[in-house]
Simulated assay, not measured.
Amino acid sequence: MWTTINQIFASHHSQNAWAHLASTSAWHKILPNATDGTTNVHLVLTAAKANDKQAFVVLDGGDNITQAYL
């Protein structure tokens, strides 16, 4: 789904990154399958937020973010 990113969150813990999506009005965890994958998806969402662009976000059955692109 195409959506605006309201907020971004990450902590010092490995693979712990979240995004608040405007389309669902909820926080969604970036699925922690691989460290690089979590970082890459987080960077795409951060770029969308920083540039006031929408991102296409794919959610799995548990509402975790599995993919994102601009």
Score class of each variant (00 low, 15 high):
A50S: 14
I30F: 01
Y69E: 07
D60M: 04
Q7R: 10
L70M: 12
A55Q: 02
Q7N: 11
V58Y: 07
A22S: 10
H13A: 09
A50W: 09
I65T: 04
A48R: 00
H13Y: 13
A34T: 13
H20Y: 15
W18Q: 14
L43T: 09
D52Y: 10
N6H: 07
D36W: 11
I30Y: 01
Q7M: 10
H20C: 08
I5R: 01
Q7G: 03
H28C: 06
V41Y: 00
H28D: 06
G37V: 07
L45I: 13
W27K: 09
N33Y: 14
K49C: 04
N51T: 13
K49S: 05
A22I: 10
G62I: 08
I65V: 14
A34E: 04
N51L: 15
L59D: 03
V58T: 09
A17F: 03
A48D: 04
N16G: 02
F56K: 08
D52Q: 15
H13F: 06
W27I: 04
K53H: 15
H42T: 12
A55F: 04
A68F: 01
M1V: 07
S23G: 13
G62M: 15
H20L: 15
T4V: 14
D60R: 02
N33M: 11
P32I: 03
S14F: 12
G37E: 15
P32Y: 05
W18K: 09
K49I: 06
F9M: 05
A47I: 13
P32T: 06
